[in-house]
């Protein structure tokens, strides 16, 4: 049972890192919300992680699966899903399996990431065992872990914060309250 405070703490951390949050009761509702958001932005090219494609299409999103790096770079939005959330810092944790998935998180200017509330843990340290186990797996491509907290940022010019320098300028996190379908 996830205590509400863990979710609230996650939201506080993510928002202070510059992420935006919406909440939905289940996966379908989350994708509906994502569809509305994308429509508002009049975005045409949307790529989704393979695991989300079917559900995204059902929600009326015109999504494609990524076809190579150039394709991902040309997309305006990417819809992805995180494996865990760390409440302390508002961090999304992804146990990546391939480079395209990783690029899908990074290249489009808008990244919509879905996260199930039940996967939120207090902090990254709580995941040490899981991460360590994942990174010990063999196979090609090799195992990866990504932590993503807020959009891409820099303060390299006059120490002024600027968003979206290499990765997404917007990171929108859709929190799924239920267990999902």
């Amino acid at each position: 049972m996830v205590t509400p405070s863990l979710v609230d703490r996650f939201i506080a951390g993510a928002v202070s890192a510059g992420a935006e949050i919406f909440r939905a009761p289940d996966l379908r509702a989350a994708l509906d919300a994502a569809a509305r958001l994308i429509e508002d932005e009049s975005i045409r090219t949307i790529l989704a992680s393979p695991s989300l494609r079917k559900a995204a299409e059902e929600a009326g999103l015109d999504v494609r699966l990524p076809e190579g790096t150039a394709d991902i770079a040309a997309a305006e939005a990417g819809i992805v899903q995180a494996d865990f959330g760390a409440a302390e810092t508002g961090t999304l944790v992804r146990l990546d399996s391939g480079d395209e998935e990783k690029l899908l998180w990074t290249l489009p200017s808008l990244c919509v990431c879905l996260l199930e509330c039940r996967t939120i843990v207090p902090d990254l340290q709580s995941l040490a065992g899981v991460l360590s186990g994942h990174l010990a797996r063999t196979g090609r491509p090799g195992p990866q872990v990504s932590f993503v907290t807020g959009p891409s940022r820099t303060a390299d010019i006059e120490c002024q914060l600027a968003i979206g320098v290499q990765g997404p300028a917007r990171l929108v996190i859709g929190l799924i309250e239920g267990q999902g379908p």
Binding site: G13, S16, A17, E88, T89, T91, D99, K102, T106, L124, Q125, A128, L131, L135, T138, R140, P141, G142, P143, Q144, V145, S146, F147, V148, T149, G150, P151, S152, R153, A155, G167
Partner: peptide, 28 residues
């Protein structure tokens, strides 16, 4: 993870940096 917890707070005053990657083996 402990190093990370301290590094970003001390370096830029951020609870954590935007991106942290753990890479094991070749991607491509």
């Amino acid at each position: 993870l402990l190093l990370l917890k301290i590094l970003t707070k001390s370096a830029t005053g951020q609870p954590i940096s935007s991106y942290v990657s753990f890479i094991a083996g070749p991607h491509r």
